[in-house]
Design a binder for these strands. Structure first.
Lengths: 334, 334
DNA sequence: TTGAAAGCGCTACCAT
DNA sequence: ATGGTAGCGCTTTCAA
């Protein structure tokens, strides 16, 4: 069944049906009713491909979320969920692409074949070839995270530098002098992963300001790595009394490592970092942390993209978020 | 730039370019080379909408994943990730739909507007109107999970009945006589959510066989609810020595509740259940559990769907999985 | 207020 | 081995 069939049954032309549907031209009440009646009766819905071909818009946005490693993190799940829901609120669908670099087939399909009107990119690197590629094309994109030079781009990001620094100050205020930093895996840091870099930078700078003794570690995105990382930390400097982490997936392992080493949190050892609230609350004691507002960020990203799609000449906008540290129970006096 | 442009520059007809691309008709090596050269030079990619309109296939599959509540669970993330990757391996894209019922706008768009060739449904209920709707339409779909009467349908599912029973037998073998069952939220159980029902059923039957004293609880999908649930369990029957859970998101809270009550796992209390391996390993001590092979299931679902799309007359197939219990460290003698 | 018809870019049938 | 062309189902301009 197609628009011609509807037109025939309603005794009008195809264009009239089209206009009745889009409202882009006045249609008499009588005609509209007749058409609507036929449509309801037959359960007609216009074919998306035909529509996209004719008017050049797919009403679909691409969500590019490369695997950060063997698995995905909980934060990514929150982003995906919120993006999909926010897009649905704007009557847009979301096409997923697991592309990590701009040469990925899936990435090429998305753009080259015009499957989407715009894209949201996750897992941004300071130097990101996907972002450069899209910017070069003038393709509407919004990133969750920002590159080294985000000027003139559309993005929503966390101020990882400030967040990591806030964690350091929180611990320093409590009297901690020897602190470790547990970063994401080395592979990510080396490939220029934004949060890993800016987080480390903020940590290092703040620690220097406060005159603290610090060590930074990379840690795999899983519990076993977290446990191993704590062992290393305590071996390298048994006098360490606190750690700051960005590594949500390793959190459970970090706690386990501390327990095995006989360090009670928060009595003997404080733990804090940048983690989504729902994960911070699954550990015991609950983690004092800067809560990543993942759901809100996904929503903001969609809103920005829709704005950009609606008005292609709109000037670039962005949101830099700095959520406060939520005091829970994992930090205490040194 | 379009196929006509390529044809013109290569000095051939549009159909020849089309056939050179699809390989559905022999093209002389010489012609093919000329065409390929122009394509490479211009970076041409055929427009997906036009192609879909002409041949009736979108090369896109829909993934319907309703939020199980305010948030998504980690298992869902694993499903999504593996589905997207498996689909990419078949050169298919994945369109996400957050629909819980067949009247959702997003669900209607997916099907009615023919945005996808087929669909994979998650979060199945024993009586699922989305599944019935699709079956009625003869629309190619594969479910992750199975309805009350899955005969003649395409699906991949866990044998929750057997899995919950295995947990009970494991505990009974260790000498536990008073066991609690921690299910998903009541809302899900009441709406006929498959795993909640079949899991409860398997638990109940096995407990009866072994003559155990049991109580079943519903529990919200978050740590706070898990903690509260344990309190209730120990209040209702302080002699309880073990629990079985399907609730991955509450796991951390369950552990915390036990710790607060002064019960040491596994010395004073055993915990087991059905949980994806990576979550089972984040708690301390690591959870002895039937590991949900989420990644494998997503892959199987895509393979089934592609098979069904390739050969519409293929007879319905399915995979019922019963992963073994992985012995970790959360269970011990009563 | 409505209709006719020319595309949108590609596929596949019918020719040659 | 290749070309011509009629659709696929919709939108939108041009006319009335």
């Amino acid at each position: 069944m197609n628009i011609g069939e509807i037109a025939r049954r309603a005794g009008v032309s195809r264009s009239t049906v089209s206009y009745a549907l889009s409202g882009k031209r006045p249609v008499s009440d009588d005609t509209r009713r007749k058409i609507q009646h036929v449509i309801d009766e037959l359960g007609y819905r216009p074919n998306a491909s035909a529509r996209a071909l004719a008017n050049g818009r797919t009403s679909t946005i691409g969500l590019v979320f490369p695997p950060a490693g063997p698995h995905y993190t909980g934060m990514q799940l929150d982003f995906i969920g919120s993006v999909v829901e926010a897009a649905a609120a704007h009557d847009h669908d979301v096409l997923l692409s697991p592309s990590g670099v701009d040469s990925d087939r899936s990435f090429q399909r998305l753009l080259g074949e015009r499957r989407v009107d715009g894209a949201i990119l996750m897992e941004i690197k300071l130097a990101d070839d996907r972002v450069d590629h899209l910017a070069g094309l003038g393709f509407p994109a919004v990133t969750i995270g920002r590159t080294a030079r985000p000027e003139g781009q559309w993005w929503v990001a966390l101020d990882h530098t400030a967040l990591a620094a806030a964690c350091v100050h929180h611990l320093a205020d409590l009297g901690h002098r020897r602190i470790a930093f547990v970063n994401r895996p080395e592979r990510l840091l080396r490939s220029g992963y934004e949060s890993a870099h800016r987080g480390l930078e903020g940590f290092t700078k703040a620690a220097a300001e406060r005159g603290l003794t610090v060590r930074a570690y990379c840690c795999g995105d899983d519990a076993a790595s977290g446990e191993a990382c704590v062992e290393r930390i305590l071996r390298d400097d048994p006098a360490t009394t606190a750690l700051v982490t960005l590594n949500e997936a390793a959190l459970g392992g970090l706690y386990r490592g501390l327990a095995h080493a006989g360090r009670h949190v928060p009595r003997d050892f404080s733990v804090t970092g940048v983690v989504a609230a729902r994960w911070a609350e699954t550990v015991t004691p609950p983690l004092t942390a800067a809560d990543v507002p993942a759901a809100r960020m996904g929503e903001l990203a969609v809103d920005l993209l829709i704005e950009r799609l609606t008005d292609p000449s709109a000037p670039a906008r962005h949101h830099l978020l700095t959520p406060p540290i939520s005091l829970r129970a994992s930090t205490g006096p040194a």
